[in-house]
Simulated scan of single mutants.
Amino acid sequence: MDAVDVKIIAELTRNARISYSELAGKVLLSRNAVRQRIERLERQGHIAGYTIVRTGDRTGDVVAALVLVHRKDRMRGGDVLAALERIPEVVICEVLSGEFDIMVRLEAASLERVRVIWEDIAKMPGVRDTVTALTLSSVVSRPRGGRSSTAPG
C-alpha cells in the first residue's frame, strides 16, 4: 500500500458511498485509476465486506456479546467457521490459540436474537461447548488500522 491507497481508505472510511469521481478529485487520480485501486485493495484484503451502522439513542439499540467456542476437532472444524460466516450478526470471528478455539463477537437487535444465535452455535455439529458473555459497556472502540503513521491527520 502506498500513500494514495492510504488516502483512498481514509476517504472510504469517512464516506463509504463516495463516488469514484469525487474520490478521484480528493486523491488526484482519474476515476478509472481509483476504481482499479479499490478493486486491488479488495483483492488484497485491505477492504472487505460492507457494514451497516445503526444509529439510535445512546441507550444502545444493539446487544453485543462474545461467544467463545470449543470445537470438537480443531484441525477439521472448518464447517463451524463457514457456518459462523453466514450469520449476519457475527461482526468478528477469530481463530484463537490457547483454551478456546474461536472468539465470536455478535451484535444483534435484541437479547432474544443473541440467545437464538447462541443456541444455533451450540447446536452446530462441530461445536463441543461455548462460553458467552454479554457486553455491558464499550470503553474503547477504534477503527481497524487506527494507529497507522501514514494515515492523513
Rank of each mutant, 00 (worst) to 15 (best):
T13H: 06
R14Y: 01
A16R: 10
A16F: 07
R17V: 12
R17I: 15
Y20E: 08
S21H: 01
G25A: 05
G25R: 06
V27A: 02
V27G: 12
V27C: 10
V27W: 12
L29D: 03
R31A: 01
R31T: 07
R31S: 05
A33L: 00
A33F: 02
V34K: 06
R35D: 01
R37K: 15
R37I: 15
R37A: 08
E39K: 15
L41E: 07
R43V: 10
Q44C: 00
H46N: 14
H46K: 14
H46F: 11
I47N: 00
A48D: 02
G49C: 04
T51A: 04
V53M: 04
V53A: 03
G56A: 06
D57G: 14
T59V: 10
T59H: 14
V63Y: 08
V63G: 06
V63F: 07
V63R: 10
A64M: 07
L66Y: 12
L68G: 15
V69N: 12
V69E: 14
V69S: 10
H70N: 14
K72N: 14
D73C: 11
R74F: 05
R76S: 04
R76H: 11
G77S: 05
V80K: 00
L81F: 09
L81T: 03
A83W: 10
E85D: 02
R86E: 06
E89R: 05
E89N: 09
E89V: 09
E89P: 09
E89C: 04
V90C: 00
V91K: 11
V91H: 06
C93I: 08
C93P: 06
E94M: 12
V95R: 14
V95K: 12
S97F: 04
F100G: 03
I102T: 13
R105S: 09
R105T: 15
L106W: 11
A108K: 04
A109W: 03
A109C: 06
V114H: 09
V114E: 07
V116D: 14
E119C: 03
D120E: 08
I121S: 02
I121Q: 05
M124Q: 07
M124K: 02
P125G: 09
P125T: 13
G126W: 05
G126V: 10
V127I: 11
V127C: 07
D129C: 07
T130S: 10
T132S: 02
T132R: 02
A133F: 06
L134P: 01
L134G: 02
T135D: 10
T135E: 04
L136I: 13
